[in-house]
Structures are given as C-alpha cells and as structure tokens.
Design a binder for these strands. Structure first.
Length: 389
DNA sequence: GGCGCTCTCGGTTAACTGAC
DNA sequence: GTCAGTTAACCGAGAGCGCC
C-alpha cells in the first residue's frame, strides 16, 4: 500500500494520537494484529500482516517528518526505526535455576536452599551483558522520543517551519529542490505566481498543487501562519473570473506606494481624489474599451499627484504631468527630479494588475501616446473641477 | 511534458462623432 | 474643415488551457 500524496489524498502529514499509540505498542512488543484492531480500527479483511506492516511503515515515515519540526532536539527520532524484536533478541537471558543445577550440581550434592544461595551469588557476580544494557538504553530513549512527539503533534505551523516538517517527504524534497524550503516561502510563491505556481516545481502537478493551496488556506493553518494564499491561487483563471472582485482583496502596493487605483491607499487628504476618479470611471463601465483606456490614464495621474507632487488633483497643472511624462524613461536617473525612481514607475510589459510586478508604465510613451494621455487627463481634471464633483 | 491554439493585457493608432 | 473628445481595433508578447 503506497502512502504517497496521490493515494493518501492529502499532502500534509495526518498523524494522530491513535497512530502514535500504535507505534508505542509495536515498540513494546505487542503483535501487529492486536494493534491494528485496537488503534487503527481496521476490519478483519485488513488484518493481513502485509497491510499492517504497510501501516507501520507509513506511521514511521510520518513520524520522521514530524521530527523535522523539532529540529536538532529530535535527532534521536531515527531510533524509532529500529526493530524492537532485534533489540530484545540480542539480550542474553540469565541461566535458569534448573540449568544452573545441571551445570554446577549434576549429582544433587546441595540442598535446595544451598543451591539457591549459590545461584544468587553467581548471578550477582556475573559480568554485565553490555549489549543488553545498550539495548535497554535504546528502548528507554525510544519511549522518551515517542513521548516528546505527543507535544510536537500539537505544534502550530509557522512561516519559518521547513516544508519537510509538514508535508509528504517526496513532495517536500521537490519543493526544496525548487528553492521553496519553508511554509512562508511556499505561501509567498503561490501568491506571486497564482494558480499555476506548480509549474515552477518539477514533479508537482495541478491536483497536488490545488490540495496544497487548499490546506494552506484552511482557517487553522492560515491563522497559525498569519498569512494565507489568496483566492486567485485556489481557482483556475476562468473560474476565478466569475468573481473577479476578489482580486482587489489581495492587490498589494510595493514599498514605493505605487499600486493599481483599486488598491491604492493614498494619504488621507488625497482619499477624496481617488474616490472621485473611481466615480468618474464608473460612468464609462458600459464601454469597456474606453473604461480601460481612461482607467490607465487616470490611474497614472492620481499616483503622480499623490506620490510625486503630494498635492490634490484640484491644485495641479497639466504642464506638471506633461513634464513628468516627457522625462519618463527606463534609464533616466540624472534628469529626474522626482521622489520615486523612474525605474520604479516602469514595470515589466504584460505584468498582471494584481501582481507585485505591476507598474503604471512599461516604458517611455510615444508622442501620440503622450498626447492622448494629456487629453484624457485634461478632461478628467475639468470634470472634477465642476461643482457637481 | 510538449505542442499549439486561445485569451488577455498594455500600448498604440485610427476612426468616429459632435461642436464650432 | 478643423479640432477635441471618445471609441474601437490592431499589435506583440505572455499566460492559460486543452489535447495528445
């Protein structure tokens, strides 16, 4: 029975108290069928020894994974992989009284009480069996390690935890190979890349990726991590498009403060400008092409006014924006009097609006584009200046 | 996993409309 | 006819996605 993520139906480790009790009983020498009935609730049809051994192997593997959560202090976890039968069979049993009699008193010269006294003296004088003592020490350490695992079972995940401490081993190793070593990094990568993040991880497919994202988004995990994957990473693009407003929840501004207008958080005194522009844009929603073109231009103007001039729209001149557009170019560092570097205004072409890579511009504008931009902005400023606004 | 078609996006340009 | 404002279409690139 394979217990990888495909057959188990889960990517996360799902060990509980019952499984630990199963392992503890095994280490104590109880027969597997007894443990299976008592702790795993397996039916008689599953009492096949091979099935039970597979359960045992799976539990041991998961215990090793959980041991990763404990770091160095659980370096003894590998002791749990030792076969308890071997630990017992190597222990030398003391000679019985009858065997002692045949060896030391074959002709029955001693009375029962005398023989018993000699026997006890011989046992006390016998050299210690070092292997038996070592095995006994290992057994005690096994029990101690198992007790410590009880505590780890209830540990909350943290962003710094390694993926190897929480996920199925082969999955964890693939994430680590893809330079995703921690749960925090995993959430960040999923949010950055979106639903198709798993394309970055060879050997991880859509089904597993979805399962992983769902696990990370579960309330308990999200609360523990203090971060979670966004709704965009849980659904394919077309499915998500039906509820596109959700995108706005996760739009995040880079450190410069630049963000799509829907997510832009301006200083309080400019909040009214942003609202007025959004209201103006609403008037064009029935005309998608116009809405898109106007949003682009209005967005740039609002960001420029709030982040560079730090003035409300009502007090800026269109010439100031013209000067900004004239200077804007990817390599312009010398002839650049503004607060935010030109490079921070310019992003990758085709970057999605809801990613951190998005910027208002993708390069210097052509003459025609500058003219269109200024025309749209002039119209916007004129309409905002009207009394109704 | 590879391939190829489709979709989406930002930038750009051209066409359309109405006022003068 | 000219101009400003508005709208639609096109382009190129990348991502999405189905099929094999």
């Amino acid at each position: 029975m394979s217990r990888n993520w495909r057959s188990a139906g889960t990517v996360a480790i799902g060990l509980g108290k019952r499984q630990l009790a199963f392992l503890r009983g095994y280490l104590d020498g109880l027969p597997l069928p007894v443990l299976g009935r008592r702790y795993l609730s397996v039916g008689d049809s599953d009492l096949d020894l091979r099935v039970l051994k597979a359960h045992l192997k799976s539990i041991r593997q998961q215990v090793m994974v959980i041991g990763e959560r404990g770091g160095r202090e659980f370096k003894d976890a590998r002791l749990l992989l030792l076969d308890p039968d071997k630990l017992r069979s190597t222990a030398t049993q003391p000679m019985s009284l009858e065997e002692f009699r045949q060896e030391r008193d074959p002709y029955e010269m001693y009375s029962e009480s005398e023989l018993l006294e000699i026997y006890q003296e011989a046992l006390a004088d016998a050299p210690p069996d070092r292997r038996a003592q070592r095995n006994e020490r290992i057994r005690r350490r096994q029990v101690a390690v198992l007790s410590q695992f009880e505590h780890l079972l209830h540990a909350d995940p943290s962003p710094k935890d390694g993926v190897a401490g929480w996920l199925e081993p082969s999955l964890a190793s693939r994430l680590i190979a893809a330079e995703i070593p921690t749960l925090g990094k995993l959430v960040a990568v999923i949010n950055e890349q979106g639903y198709w993040w798993f394309k970055l991880v060879p050997g991880v497919g859509e089904k597993v990726a979805r399962s992983l994202a769902t696990w990370l988004a579960s309330p308990y995990i999200a609360t523990s991590l203090k971060t979670t994957v966004g709704p965009h990473a849980l659904k394919r693009h077309k499915e998500h498009k039906k509820s596109r407003h959700c995108d706005l929840d996760r739009l995040r501004a880079p450190s410069s403060g630049i963000a799509p207008i829907e997510a832009f958080v301006p200083p309080a005194r400019f909040a009214a400008d942003r609202e007025a522009v959004l209201a103006w844009l609403d008037g064009y929603k029935a005309k998608p092409s116009t809405y898109r073109a106007y949003r682009k231009e209005a967005e740039r103007l609002v960001l420029f006014a709030a982040l560079e001039l730090r003035k409300p729209l009502a007090s800026i001149y269109i010439e100031q924006y013209r000067d900004f557009l004239d200077r804007l170019a990817p390599g312009n560092t010398e002839d650049w009097p503004y607060r935010i570097a030109a490079a921070d205004w310019i992003g990758e072409p085709k970057a999605k609006r809801w990613t951190d890579r998005w910027r208002p511009f993708t390069g210097a504008l052509s003459d025609k584009s500058r003219k269109l931009a200024l025309d749209v902005c002039r119209t916007l400023l004129a309409q905002l200046a009207q009394p109704s606004h």
